[in-house]
């Protein structure tokens, strides 16, 4: 998909550039953009290292497990059919906590582990179970306590108050997750498992 989006971006800008007589500016923008991308990554590098370092402390000190206990009432509500102390539930909770703490590197392997457990419970069918759909929906609307990349970007571009977006981000993510969960619950009843 990105294949088409990206080539589309390039083609459209060249064609529009020809018609608007800004072809030179388009060429300059290409070079400018390439530099800006590297500049941005260098600018983000320190902050990314910092948060990854903190995430590792959280992981090594078992903070994830402590958080997981706090979350268990929520997960039981979301996945009523999965047993409380099963491997599947454990992996689901750890993935959710990793997402919350912004541990992107750790969250994906944990999520895949959770999917594998759910796949076992689903009898390795090619059609997703309700629990799998719910789990992926929650992941696509992941709540992150500190949206560190955006904050770092804001700081790079000279924002007066880079972290002021945190509270609004929480509100929006919670609304999104709740609506996603409701949508999943409604839709799973409409279409029965094949």
């Amino acid at each position: 998909m990105l294949n088409y989006i990206w080539s589309g971006m390039i083609l459209v800008s060249i064609v529009v550039g020809v018609f608007s007589g800004r072809l030179e500016a388009v060429t300059a923008a290409a070079m400018d953009g390439a530099g800006a991308a590297v500049e941005m990554c260098v600018g983000l590098l320190g902050v990314m290292c910092f948060w990854s370092g903190l995430a590792k402390i959280a992981e090594n000190s078992g903070l994830t497990k402590a958080f997981a206990k706090l979350l268990s009432p929520v997960t039981r509500l979301l996945f009523p059919k999965i047993k409380k102390d099963s491997k599947a539930m454990n992996a689901i909770v750890l993935n959710m906590v990793a997402n919350l703490l912004g541990m992107g590197n750790a969250a994906t392997p944990l999520g895949i582990a959770a999917m594998k457990e759910l796949d076992k419970e689903n009898g390795h069918r090619a059609t997703a179970s309700n629990e799998m759909c719910m789990f992926v929906v929650i992941n696509t609307a992941s709540i992150q306590l500190i949206p560190s990349t955006v904050i770092a970007l804001r700081q790079m571009f000279g924002s007066q108050n880079p972290s002021e977006i945190i509270f609004p981000v929480w509100v929006c993510s919670v609304c999104a997750v709740i609506m996603g969960v409701c949508a999943a619950k409604i839709l799973e009843k409409r279409r029965k498992l094949l």
Binding site: M9, I10, S13, R22, V26, A28, A29, A30, A37
Partner: peptide, 10 residues
Amino acid sequence: IVGIYMLRAS
């Protein structure tokens, strides 16, 4: 970013 900057400039 090259793509977006090009779109913007055109």
